[in-house]
Design a protein around this nucleic acid. Structure first.
Length: 275
DNA sequence: GGTTGCTTTCCTGGTT
DNA sequence: TAACCAGGAAAGCAAC
């Protein structure tokens, strides 16, 4: 028997995030001096790996902690300490971050554009960029009030509304369309269908006019949803149960085919002229 | 603190 | 046999 995951043999194995990270390393252009490392390596692996210690050979054991140094004067180690702090403090998913892209000095980090951050760390990149810009403009007071900072970051994420997806700002604010920050599962699914650059073949339209779509990579979809909800125990079985609840509310309609769903009358935003 | 809506988790049973 | 679907039940969680 074949599964949905088996239907695209041409696709490289691994999660979408892993492939994105691999791709980002392979096609890295904004950090030409970045040394190659395993793109699937976590920061903890990277940080503890002897092979990467030479990167710090010019540093001494008495290097001061990153908070005591202006970002522009950070060493590579400071940059990674900062990343570690951000992941812990703001519950960012370290798996989304291509740490190879951050094997750089503070000066290089400060010269990175928002797009570069997004390329290196996806949605987390926007958070990191925002945090860094605040540090540069406001000093370190940003870390004095963690809760306030979290709220500010959240507001920023909503207001920025994923500019990289190329959606006009009025679309963002009037319809919350294509914002992958969507808190509802059906909106997340809809936005994924409307964002080919984020989709990576996980979902595909069967009949766009009728709102019929197919889950191509069920496991990958569950993982993405789990990452969005910071729930690493998410499975497709649970996700599909949540989708089935939408039958009651008319957001989804039954389609008697496996892994196929249809937007119902109460779903909006999935079709251009229904916005 | 109670209510509500949404989601998650677990479960049983059926289908492909 | 595994993956998926259907749906009940209960609990968690956040917003109001």
């Amino acid at each position: 028997m074949t599964t949905s995951e088996d239907q695209s043999p041409a696709q490289p194995r691994g999660t979408r995030e892993q492939r994105v990270m691999l791709d980002s390393v392979t096609h890295s252009t904004f950090l030409p001096n970045t040394s190659f490392c395993d793109p699937l390596m976590s920061w903890t692996d990277l940080f503890s790996n002897e092979e990467y210690h030479p990167a710090f050979e010019h540093q001494t054991a008495c290097d001061s902690y990153w908070t005591s140094v202006h970002p522009e004067y950070w060493t590579k180690r400071h940059v990674w300490e900062w990343l570690q702090f951000c992941c812990n403090q703001y519950k960012l998913d370290a798996n989304c971050i291509s740490f190879c892209h951050f094997n750089i000095s503070g000066l290089q980090l400060c010269s990175m554009t928002q797009e570069a951050f997004i390329e290196a760390a996806g949605v987390c990149g926007e958070y990191l960029y925002f945090i860094l810009q605040n540090m540069r403009s406001q000093g370190y007071s940003i870390f004095n009030e963690p809760e306030e900072t979290k709220a500010t970051i959240k507001d920023y994420a909503v207001s920025s509304c994923l500019k990289t997806s190329g959606i006009k700002s009025q679309d963002c604010h009037s319809h919350s369309r294509t914002s992958l920050q969507s808190s509802h599962l059906w909106e997340f699914v809809r936005d994924l269908l409307l964002s080919p650059e984020e989709n990576c073949g996980i979902l595909e339209w069967e009949d766009r006019d009728q709102g019929i779509f197919r889950v191509v990579k069920s496991e990958a979809l569950a993982k993405m949803w789990g990452q969005r909800k910071r729930n690493d125990r998410m499975t497709y079985e649970k996700l599909s149960r949540a989708l089935r609840y939408y039958y009651k509310t008319g957001i989804l309609e039954r389609v008697d085919r496996r892994l196929v769903y249809k937007f119902g009358k109460n779903a909006h935003g999935w079709k251009e002229d229904k916005l």
